[in-house]
Write a protein that binds this DNA or RNA. Structure first.
Lengths: 139, 139
DNA sequence: GTGCAACTTCAAGTTCACTTGAGGTCAAGG
DNA sequence: CCTTGACCTCAAGTGAACTTGAAGTTGCAC
């Protein structure tokens, strides 16, 4: 029976995160030896699913909803498709932004304010046509 | 001389945000009428630049660095190119994720765990090959 | 001149996903 | 048996970007 340290080692997550996930109901320990949690090795697959969900942009609460009462992941295909569509929109925005950044970086105009492309970009940002992604962090 | 309400209306930002930006040194009011702030209309361009920077993934602190002491935006071309590269990496990851999500949504396997593509995706997420974007919010 | 809506300040609260710290317990090695 | 280090709990802290609330002030219409 792996303990939390073993699960931490094998999943690459800090033990504190695993305890946090347990508190949130995202994973469960299978028992205790004294105070210490013992885990079923299957928790590793669960942690991988959580990492996957996070990478796809789901919040921990959304991920919790996917783990049905029975414990088996109940992944809603409609939810996946919706998230894919959302990613698609994000990708399009980011692509436009990346192109504009590259242009601005290479633009010969003395001042970015004099560059028509930059000003168009500025208007798009000001109008809220582009959404903000929060800073990404490593898993 | 527009007051904060006028700037809020024209920028689409809540007044509290504009005060917050002022506190952060991102924008400046040009004076007061009594207690009330008065703004140069040019602050609208400044706010648009801030929105643009946020949309490109810069933090408010990074954006503050771009506004040089002289007040004119001093946009570092190297910084822009670096951010474009970062966006490029993000776009690649998101694209892979989107494709996998679409596959999972359409996958005929009874259980996602039995789908080789899904399991490959799972391994990628578990290995940390995919990074987490924090939830995006509207500007 | 007076009422009051709208501004002001400052501190504290919010969200998310964790991390950190203090103080406590205990399994295992010597 | 006793030490010790790794685990435990619970509360509080972190960071980013704001928002909200309480309490105070005031420009302006009437």
């Amino acid at each position: 029976m792996p303990d939390i340290t073993e699960i931490a080692r094998r999943s690459g997550l800090p033990a504190s995160t695993i305890r946090f996930y347990e508190e949130k109901g995202l994973v469960a320990s299978i028992g205790r030896r004294g105070l210490r949690r013992l885990f079923d090795p299957g928790v590793l697959e669960r942690l991988a699913l959580i990492a996957l969900g996070r990478a796809a942009g789901f919040s921990l609460d959304e991920i919790a909803l996917m783990f049905a009462a029975n414990g088996r992941p109940r992944i809603n295909r409609r939810m996946l498709a919706a998230k894919a569509d959302e990613l698609d929109r994000t990708i399009r925005e980011l692509t436009a932004m990346r192109d504009s950044l590259r242009h601005a970086a290479a633009c010969p105009a003395q001042n970015h304010m004099e560059c028509p492309k930059f000003r168009r970009l500025l208007r798009a940002a000001a109008s809220g046509a582009i959404s903000v992604r929060k800073k990404k962090t490593a898993i």
